[in-house]
Amino acid sequence: MNDALHNIRIWDDLARRQNAVNNLHPLVKLLTTIFYLIVVVSFGRYEISSLLPLIFYPVVIFSLAELPLGEVLKRIAWAMPFVIGIGIFNPVFDHQTVELLGFTISRGWLTFISILIKCVLTVAAGILLVATTGMERLGAALRMIRVPRVFVLQLLLTYRYISVLGNELARMLRAYSLRAPGQKGIKREAWGSLTGSLLLRSFDRAQRVYAAMCLRGFAGEYNSGAMAKIGAGDLGFLAGWSTFFIMARLYDWPLWLGSLLTGVF
């Protein structure tokens, strides 16, 4: 519980710092990230070596933005279980073998590794986007690509109230556990009343928030402030990385590099 709130705060804090990556235009970062993800997942199951150069993007952004390595790795590890759970069946079902350095391994393991690499790359790219942009600037970027106002405002409100309701729930759970020693979770009799009480409190809060919004002239329109213009540096960032992604997709650099070296030796 507190862990989840802590996570949101961490990325929020990181995104508020001033540095080269954080100061880039949010829309540019969003587009670069999406393009990166498309390129990563477009690789076939057996392409591993050609997938590797794409790791340059997260590594460079990560270093430029000076993010904490531990937190990023934790986030990636968190996302792994489902992917591993599905991917682990590849070695089970694909027994065709290939020879590699004199060892014989099944193709299933190779495809499994390919999935794992993709998981690391995609999750890292998503985390880097939030940790260098922050929710409110992402919201502004979404507005720029014409995502409806209703959705963006609602998204920002949800983000804002997670910590408020999270703390409210934490207090309720504490009160519950103090009177239910030794219980691990919430028992059946209290499912509805505990969750329902939180729900009704949230409901009342929503009404007060609505009143607060109306009192300050809200009439269904969400007016975000002026957005910074996209500068030459931003465009350069987008163009540079896009070129890199395309090159990485078209040519298998590691294979080429490897052939060069193994040819020499």
């Binding site: 519980m1 989840a4 209703v150 405002l153 609602q154 998204l155 920002l156 409100l157 949800t158 983000y159 804002r160 109230y161 997670i162 408020v164 309701l165 999270g166 409210e168 729930l169 759970l173 219980q183 691990k184 979770g185 919430i186 028992k187 059946r188 499912w191 505990l194 969750t195 939180l198 729900l199 949230s202 409901f203 809060r205 929503a206 009404q207 928030v209 609505y210 919004m213 809200f218 009439a219 269904g220």
Partner: peptide, 25 residues
């Protein structure tokens, strides 16, 4: 438009509620 703040807060509510451990009898 009254729904928008309600949606926002309910979204946060579901987020919080997802953290509750319900003991299965």
């Amino acid at each position: 438009e009254k729904k928008i703040p309600l949606m926002g807060v309910m979204g946060a509510f579901v987020f919080a509620a997802q953290m509750i451990n319900f003991t299965i009898p």
